[in-house]
Design a protein around this nucleic acid. Structure first.
Lengths: 243, 243
DNA sequence: GAGTGGTCTAGACCACACT
DNA sequence: GTGTGGTCTAGACCACTCC
């Protein structure tokens, strides 16, 4: 009996779905090896080539990382190369190696306003955590972020935790709360620096800044973070490859 | 005798190179079908699977477009869905269908300054064409672009041509000069509207705007266009997917 | 029905990493 | 050496488009 058109999904996509489920359920942690293609082929009763195609897609999605001769790994924001994977800001000087440093400012509990709730796909009034921080390149403050998190996913997050952690936020979220950020979407506008942003970024009030709003998604396109950053573009620019 | 490591390139990549060469030489024009996988396999004396992998990569690169049951086509900026492929600006109203309209302002010959020459990888002082235009969504001016083109690639480009053409610039460049834009890179900053931009965009002088500089590349990563646009983000935003 | 791309299989061999 | 992913092949069948 043939599959009907609207429901049809090739075998390798079904395999992809099964592996995604296993990832979601935490069968392997970020940074760990997953079973070999042969093992999956045996487990799911398909050929190695079919498993390969499923894994190929997940590697293209940055969910898995292939390493020839070693195996296939669960992508992790703990990996130095992945740490600022979503940050597109680059210094004019071209120093691509210079990693920024995250400096927390404050962190408090609140209830979701209309807009935040909409972006996070939660009910207005739901408990959230709001977190402000500055990103520094060297000693220069370049970004001020205000970050909105649904509280139930980040229970126990507080200033001490942020101050102790001297790496990227996403690596903290992954390590401490088991959250794996898969993709994100940014909306960029130009705005004038308000008093607070001007002070933190050490620029004049009214200076044009990039406003970057980002929704970050985990498995199943579930939003788990919304943030709004203002970027100073005096000595840095936002770099985007179009393909 | 085995290939030495630094020179090694898998067969499917060599095939990709050969097909790219053929594309570059104009063996098939944009929008046309290319030979079937079987035909390529015979032509290059490899299996169909190897050709498939080469074409898969080119489809991922947006150089070719696969259409099941019909064949594989050379991607074209004449295709309505590809016309504003590199434009990331979206109306707040969410009307994703509303295609913008390009209105030429002026167009003149000049010699390349240092920066333009560097971006276009040509000698400073080389002849270039400079072109200004406004992009309108509905009747609203939203983008002012200043576009720098190496003259030898765009011989005969003039205002009349631009005024007659009521479609995207890239479709004009493709149709009239045989140029196929493959990829682009944008550098985005926030700037204050100067007198000229303010007037054209109908905003106050000093209004924060997005400054978007774009280098566009054809086959072989050869730059063939540099442009700088200022975007009004009062009713539109720049949308970027991070993966 | 003929031709195209899309999926799936099975098996061989290569390149690489660890031990 | 053993095991992993990476490449290449050959053949079968499916899904879609067009005649």
């Amino acid at each position: 009996m043939a599959q009907v058109s609207p429901t049809f999904s090739p075998l390798y996509r079904q395999i992809k779905g099964l592996i995604l489920q296993a990832l979601e359920s935490g069968e392997w942690r970020p940074g760990q090896v997953i079973p070999s293609e042969q093992e999956f082929a045996a487990r799911f009763n398909v050929s190695q080539g079919t498993v390969r195609k499923a894994i190929d897609e997940m590697a293209a999605d940055n969910i898995l990382v292939r390493r020839q001769g070693r195996g296939t790994y669960v992508a992790s924001h703990t990996d130095p190369r992945q740490m600022f994977r979503f940050l597109r800001l680059v210094p004019e000087s071209g120093d691509l190696l210079a990693h920024p440093k995250s400096v927390p400012i404050d962190c408090w509990r609140a209830r979701a306003e209309q807009e935040v709730a909409h972006m996070l796909a939660i009910e207005p009034g739901s408990p959230i955590i709001i977190l402000r921080r500055v990103l520094q390149f060297g000693s220069k403050p370049v970004v001020v972020d205000e970050i909105y998190l649904p509280e139930d996913l980040y229970e126990g997050l507080n200033m001490e935790m942020l101050q102790v952690w001297n790496s990227s936020l996403y690596s903290l979220f992954e390590t401490r709360f088991g959250l794996r950020m898969i993709r994100a979407q940014e909306r960029i506008r130009a705005v004038a620096a308000d008093h607070s942003a001007a002070e933190l970024l050490q620029v004049n009030e009214g200076t044009p800044l990039l406003s970057v709003e980002r929704v970050t998604y985990t498995y199943g396109d579930k939003p788990v973070e919304w943030r709004r950053g203002v970027y100073s573009t005096a000595e840095h620019y936002y770099l985007n490859d179009l393909t």
